[in-house]
Amino acid sequence: MKVAYWPGCVSRGFTPELHGSMAKIAPLLDIELVELDRGACCGAGVIAEHNQELADTLNARTFALAQQVDGAALMMNICSTCQGAQSECQERLDANAEYRAHVNATLAGEGLVYEQGLSNKNLLWLLVEEIGLDALRSRVTRPLTDLRVGPFYGCYIVRPTDRLDIDEDRPRDSYLSLVIEALGGTVIDYAGSHKCCGFPIITMNKEASLTQAGRHLGDAADAEADCVVTPCPLCHLNLDLQQPLAEKVVGRELNMPVLHLPQLVGLALGLAPSELGLQRHVVKPKSVIDWSTSVVAQVGGSAGA
């Protein structure tokens, strides 16, 4: 499947292992990535907070570039925040033809035009809705047996439910659990899975922000998770990069590895932790690497026997 691939900013900045691991798993899932390397930042809700039309126009330009990718089935992103911020802009652009024309007029100088109805899906949605859980399961070469994984969605990919088309028939707010199960892992239920990582207020109220991160990771640890997995690199920044500081704020050791979604998928597809950039995390994913080593040893052992 060919997709117009929107990596977002953070996967090319402070979480390069996300962009890298996506590139590694794509061929194993028959996804052809055509990178949208000319689009601007989605604004992460902050540009919209400053000027809604500015955010809508920047994203309309990215959508128009995606629609120019020949033969692409849809636009795919790897960031919950991009998904949410872009969905919000797209909702306005799609709802009102007059407004769409007004925004397109600003893009006209470049010969770009956004046509209503683009399909823009996070990798998580694409795995479940386009590839399918059965097909995903059939590609697993190293099931995540005995790996206890806590899902962490990121607010922007689960709310508001109306805008994101989440309902009983399309339970996108439980897709991470479905994917973890399809990869052979054990899903850990804990209080923080659908809550906020705190990142948006890290510069405004650092203590509240780090309390959020620390509390959710603590809940995952109490539920005996080996790691948590997230489709959002901004959550990753607060949960992984800031974890040493979050530990101080909540007054407990956390040591909770935080994986990007493509890294978890990659492990089950047989890739080595180092190929997926796991060594780049601030919190050493020891439990995951130990798991991976023991699985490789078992496979080696049975092959030898």
Partner: peptide
């Protein structure tokens, strides 16, 4: 924060976290 975000995207096109 808002002003810095908006002007960084104007100047770089992408968010420059550092």
């Amino acid at each position: 924060h808002e002003r810095a975000f908006v002007s960084l995207v104007r100047d770089f096109g992408l968010l420059n976290e550092a």
